[in-house]
Write a protein that binds this DNA or RNA. Structure first.
Lengths: 250, 250
DNA sequence: CGCAAGATTGACGGAGTTCAAGCCGAGTGG
DNA sequence: CCACTCGGCTTGAACTCCGTCAATCTTGCG
């Protein structure tokens, strides 16, 4: 088995260096402190990363589908991934957008309960689930970290339920913009203007709205000078305080 | 400090036997296999349960509020608890109803990110968070179990996002009825007719609907012979297959 | 340049909310 | 034992926000 999945490699150069042959790539990982690998020290990293391979997915490619056997878990190291669930008639709920540092593939059942697809070209560290689980016995700190990560995700999920169940379209969009600004800032990425590479349709499926409503609401926020839409999927937040008031329904 | 919280004890008899003095109550716990205590063997149970106290909450009493220091975690052993978040103007999202076997209080921050209130009289096992965390080093299997529980909650949260963002009122109510039927069955409780002790308002706040819409939709399902509303908050499901079709939008 | 996919805008309709009025049932006190 | 009351539930009528359908505009790309 090759050290990374060539089926999806857009640019092979991006995927070097090869783990287990050259230097451990984790040493240079800019987001390690955010991931489940955070508690590993320099001596532990090589052993831990031996079971890891790296994969690159082109924009628009599926990483896995709901119902697939859940035998891989991932760390996102660059790019944007969307995670979603479908109803039989095609209605879709995007349950999250993952960016560098996020964990993908947490599952307790045999199969994934959701699908994952690359929104932009993305790089991921991939772990065979069985091997990772076996390794957790030797690295209890990683297990602790996974629990922490899961708790964070759970808190985010509850916040999203509040948004989906009780916020208006305008409040949803304002919350969405601030969510991304904060997440980017935590990772040292530009937090204003923010880069939103996903489509209006994806945003709608995340917020429980239609494409049209997302578009109209962006226009509305633009008209009231709250934001500016720049080319390349960039959105400038002109009045963060006011956006926060809107997001909280104040 | 007394072995259980007398402030909320409705009937002191219910709270016996006292942990650490008399027999370990966990031995008789009917839902232990569902809780974080599941992996503990009979010799470990007494040590583990030494840090535990039991509390009884009357219907309608607050267990903790969003923003309170999160220094306790709980296992629900009987009754129904609702967990919710509020917007400044009072809009509410119930993020979950907890029943026997459910875990309450998972938090990574200093403070709870949500409030919890007893819907019916409820009994809980309470653990000081710091002591529990300290104990996890000696009981790695419990930590593993907590991760499992958190994963389950996360999967449920994603399912709920799909419901909130993309389902119609009728689909939401059908999903809600089936959710409770399945959860009751897993615990060996009657799964049809099901007992729904929470108010229409609580159900609405869980499903992202108003009281009126919940009521109207119940009436509608009743008219089409899908359910029967019995006294005492009981709901009889007359055609589970059809309800499942409705719940999935088929 | 020309095309296709996505984004925006408009007009209209409908599912669900809001506001308001009755209804029911459990607890209470005369 | 029964009228009274109060909170929650149900029903009705009007409204509104957002979805639907459709046309146009923009943008990235071969």
């Amino acid at each position: 088995m090759p050290p990374f999945d060539v089926r999806f490699v857009r640019n092979l150069e991006q995927a070097r260096p090869r783990p287990g042959r050259e230097a451990v790539p984790c040493n240079a990982c800019a987001v390690r402190h955010l991931t489940v690998c955070a508690p590993l020290n320099p001596t532990e990293l090589p052993e831990f990363s031996r079971i890891m391979t790296r994969a690159v997915f082109e924009a628009g490619t599926r990483i896995f589908d709901e119902g697939d056997p859940a035998d891989q878990v991932f760390n996102v190291t660059s790019g944007v991934i969307k995670v979603y669930k479908l109803l039989p008639d095609g209605r879709r709920q995007v349950t999250g957008f993952l960016i560098a540092g996020d964990f993908l593939g947490l599952a307790n059942e045999e199969d994934y309960a959701y699908s994952a697809e690359a929104v932009t070209a993305a790089r991921l560290c991939r772990f065979p689930r069985k091997k990772l689980e076996a390794m957790l016995d030797s690295f209890p700190a990683v297990e602790r970290q996974m629990l922490l990560v899961a708790s964070h995700e759970l808190a985010a999920a509850q916040e999203q339920m509040l948004l989906l169940g009780r916020k208006t379209a305008k409040e949803k969009i304002a919350s969405f913009l601030l969510l991304f600004s904060v997440r980017y800032r935590k990772r040292g990425l530009p937090d204003n203007p923010i880069h939103l590479p996903m489509s209006r349709n994806d945003i709608g499926d995340f917020l429980g709205l239609t494409t049209e409503t997302v578009s109209r609401t962006f226009t509305q926020l633009k008209s009231s000078q709250m934001i500016r839409l720049l080319p390349g999927g960039l959105v400038e937040l002109n009045d963060v305080d006011h956006l926060e008031d809107i997001a909280e329904g104040r």
